[in-house]
Design a protein around this nucleic acid. Sequence first.
RNA 1: GCUCGGGUGGCGAAACUGGCAAACGCAUCGGACUUAAAAUCCGGUGGGAGGAAACUCCCUUGCGGGUUCGAUCCCCGCCCCGAGCACCA
Length: 811
Amino acid sequence: MNVSKYLPEAVEAKWQARWAHDGTNEVDLDGAPRPFYNLMMFPYPSAEGLHVGNLFAFTGADVYGRFQRLRGYQVFEPIGFDAFGIHSENFALKVGAHPADLIPRNIANFRRQLKRFGGMFDWRHELSTTDPAYYRWTQWLFLQLYRAGLAYRKKAAVNWCPSCKTVLANEQVEGGVCERCKTPVEQRALEQWFFRITDYADRLLANLDDPTTMDWSDTTTTAQRNWIGRSEGAEIIFRVEDHAIPVFTTRPDTLCGATFLVLAPEHTLVDAITTDAQRDAVHAYREAAAAQDLVTRKVGGRDKTGVFTGAMARNPGTGETVPVWIADYVLMEYGTGAIMAVPGHDERDLAFARAFDLPVVRVLAAPGDDAATPITDADMDTADRRLVNSGPYDGLSPGDGAAAISRDLATRGEGRSVVQYRLHDWCISRQRYWGPPIPIIHCDTCGPVPVREEDLPVLLPRIDDFTPDDSGISPLARHQEWYFAPCPSCGAPSRRETDVSDTFLDSAWYYLRYTSTDWDDRAFDADRVSRWLPVASYIGGNEHAVLHLLYSRFVAMVLHDQGLLPFEEPFRRFRAHGLIVKDGAKMSKSRGNVVIPDEYIATWGADTFRLYLMFLGPFQAGGDFRDSGISGPRRFLDKVWELVNRSIREDAHGEIEKAGLARWHRTVKKVTDDYESLNYNTAIAAMMEMLNVLRESNCCERRLVEDFVVMLAPLAPHFAEECWERLGHGTSVFDASWPAYDARLLVDDMVEVVVQVNGKTRGKVTVMRDALESVVVARAREEEGVARNLGTQEIRKVVHVPNRLVNLVVG
RNA sequence: GCUCGGGUGGCGAAACUGGCAAACGCAUCGGACUUAAAAUCCGGUGGGAGGAAACUCCCUUGCGGGUUCGAUCCCCGCCCCGAGCACCA
């Protein structure tokens, strides 16, 4: 037997073939007694193939799945492809190909790479969102939401390129101009489909605080909380003659400082209240605001612009009249689209008041200030303030003032407490080609009518020229046979909805589909779903911390409310992996620092590469990819290889001695804990240390070596299989059981205690475990370095941390 | 601007969440083996001062304060890097 060298290429090919042949990674979805759903975010199959960042994420997730399998779970680890969307479509347009031709090629390449790195995937459940057998159920999902009254249509602004005559996604607008033709982009209002996710805002928020259903990292829950953006405040009614203008404010306490109103340019009351003298100016301003693209409108300059409408409104706090302006810094989609401006205590309102010379009134005074003190930028702060210039409310704190003012407004019918969310309803319409057609037919008499479920899928027809044209609607409208369809309700000639749905809808339920790819008559099977879900571990990138995860949660909640799912939170545990950077910078094509994993795997083997990726930093933090480090893990595997072979030859020789045994048990515990918490880098370090100990003490005890191989298996699966087979086992190492450790053996009998004098280390003594303080101190004083530093000084105080440290305080 | 991460040797990073800072690995230097090189093995390597030497002492976790017997860790005030959000009233 040739044992001199470990040859990854041959070994990895052998085991990949055997896993496929034996169905090692396949799990019985109906019979598993201890199911563990190990999910990772499915990739978008780009033309470039998997990059190191993808592989880092997949490896970390796969290691965890393999670990859980060794701990005795039946682990379901599916994979699929998120292949619809603007990415694919734009790429296809660029290279002059059809996405329907490109995607299968890209998927084939991804599949090859995913097999090569050694993922424990059950390929029988692979899916692609572009497959009609999949998107049929995406369309079905739309219908469920429609039936539940959670899908509706309304006009909403989109970016519009007047030259290309097409809708642009925000990413296609660069500095206010179309990325293709450089024409300034404007806004256009189109009828679009929305989901009422805002109805679920409170539940989506509340569940984040429930540790029994959600074990998520704080960064992710915080991001979701911020995105939902709950604010408590008041809606206050200002009147302009007989028009009521409600405004939303989180600071009703400052009502008496509201010296003007500002409406969003799109506000529906603008026409009604504008005076004849101001009509032309208002009209021009509204036109100009609409001519801006959505990105510039929101992100663009902070310089305040606006126009006076000529109208005056009554401030219900002071009874005085205040001017009504319009300005684009007020957003129609938040609150009521109108604000009461309090320039004394709001930065933006102050900037606006300064720009247009509007009155500024102080209503909050810091200690030492009074009602007459001029406003400064520091007055945007609220700490320690009292109300002034507020009539009966003078002297109250902002909190008490807000309560008192809200109460008084409510009794007069001029206001009420409300909760506002930053979260908007989810616009799922895309005026694009490469997506699932929204299953609606527009009838002149019946209006929008859902396609019958039995008529799904509404197939996306192949259109060779899917370039947007000047019709201003999706290229699908050009496909006459597809576009015209009878109304499902009355049979009259009608037209299909030409918008396709957002890719986020595809990915909002894929984890359900994985469990049920065997059926084409249901989106997901009730028994399967109740056995395998919620997902036990979900790992993915932080870039999806908000939208994808929030939409998935929303969809699960809706399905739960429809009685279709037994749970409302789909992902019990979620962890975001870190980012791999190269030379201190994020990898990107433009920087030219993208690392392609294939060549590294070809050179070093998948196991070494996996080990290297997991060793270069904490999984949840990411790390810096450097070519130089990869030889370390390879040397480690070579040494383990040697140890295994020596153990086979010498078998019973070299039993570990007592101190080494404690070390061994500590290592097993540390490695186990580190896998569980995804700290793979320190798990590897602990195994390296243990290996060094075994080598130094010349120990190759069979039992330990076998356990060592099992502990390494999640990280280096092919390597471990080969070792396991050589050690005489006829079954997969992944059917072995995880090494146990004996808690009683974790500690040594003798411990080293650090001795400090005044907090500085001056020596160390070895004593029996749990030795008494008096014994430790006595021994410590005998230490030369300690005695020297102690001199003749009297010990004032002794700080004793058993088995660890003793600090003698003198002087 | 706001929110969340993060800042530790030449480099990637550890450190039981208050207890020996720098484990593990890379790189590098010296030695062994070799005709030679690679591979492998053994040993050194944060900075400074003293000593012929084994050794001894001082400094060091972005900067400045604080709490504590003791701070990489906790508190206050700054600086820098990364990610996300961004006129949200």
